[in-house]
Computed example of a mutant assay.
Amino acid sequence: MTGPHTIKVELPTGLMELSVDAGAFSVDELMGFAARANAKRGFLFLSKVLGKHWPVRPSLMRKIHMDLAGQVPADLAGPVVFIAMAETAIGLGQGVFEAYKSAHPVTEALFLHTSRYHVGGAEIIEFSEAHSHAPRQFLHMPQDAELRALLLSAKSLVLVDDEASTGNTFLNLSNACRALNPHIEHVHLATITNFMGKAANEALSQRFGVPVSIAASLSGEYVFTAGNLQPSSAAAQVFEAHADRGANGDFGRLGLNRALAAPHALAQKLAAGIKAGEQVLVLGTGEFMHLAYLLGSALEALGVDVLVQSTTRSPILKWGAVSQALSFADNYGEGVANYIYNVTLGQYDHVLVCHETPPNEALYSTAQAVGGRLFHFLSENHIEEISVR
């Protein structure tokens, strides 16, 4: 347990003052501070356990999944719908859902993740993440009748993100879901860090218009005094109403009511070629995160020294918790710059790049730059290694 304390950090973009409550995890265990190239918000609570901007052991990611799943109220009325926020918290939300399903196997539950791509011609619900570098997000209606019925009859909604600082995105998504399904009677917010503060937490139910609970691995309150904000000149999102950009509907966009299978056969094959003492990075791409985590977990179970991370479209300054920044083309083809943070070229003996989009020049160039191998996940059970030319 850690006691309450206050932290002040001078960022290139302003002053962060953070008051932290007592909790099971320390600030340093869970996060660092980073500065964003974003005129809307100049800071980032950079998670060390999310597997996005920082390489993480799968076992530590699983510990956080279980911690947050264990804090979901045990008496939530079912069906329960879990929704993870794109792109950063997709893997987190799916891990929390799977941990919850493991602990509550008889509870009807559905997992969905939001997306910035429209797949399969499915009906979409749009909402906004106002402070984001790429604010437009979509929630797809499940095409399967059973999964759609779960969404439309759900009594409880669990919204998962890596951090809560204002609650605005949660509110926007909750409103969209309740307009679709007026039967929702409770909303639970699950985050790694919740820095909205006591007063904001206590006002959530009134603000949302429905009983709301919130739980986090670390809580507190922040004040950010903006200084020299750094607007990014690069486009962050290109909206085309019917462009799926190669995004796959099988991994959570169109709904899942079960855990995805870990790729054990692939892990065993790969582990046979990894020598003792060699270090492996399993690299997800964009919104495709959870299968990279599952592959990393399977390798870790075989004794491999493995870390998991993902590429991201979020522009972060090289400062503080970001010591390295690599820029790559976007494998979804929007022409949006993608980044890998805190990875040095040549740092790992093996880099395994996991992707859902068909092979393209962006993937080839990324794999070549990091000395990696490409693995195309056509489904959870159909994975093809793509020759890096």
Rank of each mutant, 00 (worst) to 15 (best):
His133Arg: 02
Gly51Lys: 00
Leu44Trp: 08
Arg389Ser: 04
Asp21Leu: 12
Leu302Thr: 03
Gly252Gln: 07
Pro4His: 12
Gly120Arg: 06
Tyr293Ala: 11
Ala200Asp: 13
Leu378Phe: 03
Ser310Gln: 07
Glu380Gln: 15
Phe127Ile: 04
Glu240Thr: 13
Gly14Phe: 07
Ile125Gln: 04
Val351Met: 00
Leu317Tyr: 00
Gln237Glu: 13
Arg258Val: 06
Lys48Cys: 02
Ser102Trp: 08
Ile316Tyr: 11
Pro263Arg: 07
Ala35Ile: 08
Gly246Phe: 03
Trp319Ile: 10
Val343Leu: 02
Leu266Asp: 06
Gln268Ile: 10
Ser47His: 09
Leu151Phe: 04
Asn194Val: 07
Leu46Asp: 04
His118Cys: 07
Lys40His: 05
Asn381Arg: 14
Ser323Pro: 02
Ala149Glu: 11
Ala176Pro: 03
Cys177Trp: 03
Val27Trp: 14
Glu361Leu: 09
Lys101Asp: 01
Leu112Thr: 04
Ala86Asp: 04
Lys52Ile: 02
Leu157Lys: 02
Ser26Lys: 05
Ala329Ile: 06
Phe170Met: 10
Leu157Cys: 05
Pro55Asp: 05
Gly78Ile: 04
Asp161Met: 01
Leu295His: 13
Arg148Ala: 11
Glu202Ser: 13
Phe97Cys: 12
Lys40Met: 02
His104Val: 04
Ile386His: 01
Leu139Arg: 08
Phe111Cys: 07
Gly335Thr: 09
Phe375Cys: 09
Arg258His: 15
Val187Cys: 13
Ala39Gly: 07
Lys63Gly: 04
Ala134Phe: 06
Gln206Arg: 04
Tyr293Asn: 14
Thr357Tyr: 03
Phe170Gly: 01
Val280Trp: 01
Val96Thr: 08
His186Gln: 15
Val96Cys: 09
Phe208Asn: 08
Pro263Tyr: 08
Leu150Ala: 02
Ala321Lys: 09
Asp28Cys: 00
Leu299Asn: 02
Ala199Pro: 00
Leu171Ile: 05
Met196Tyr: 02
Phe170Asn: 02
Ala329Leu: 13
Asp161Trp: 02
Phe97Asp: 10
Val81Gln: 07
Ser165Gly: 10
Asn228Arg: 10
Ser232Val: 01
Arg373Glu: 14
Gly335Pro: 09
Asn194Pro: 11
Gly273Lys: 00
Asn248Thr: 14
Gly246Glu: 05
Leu254Glu: 08
Arg116Asp: 05
Ile124Thr: 15
Ala226Ile: 01
His5Arg: 13
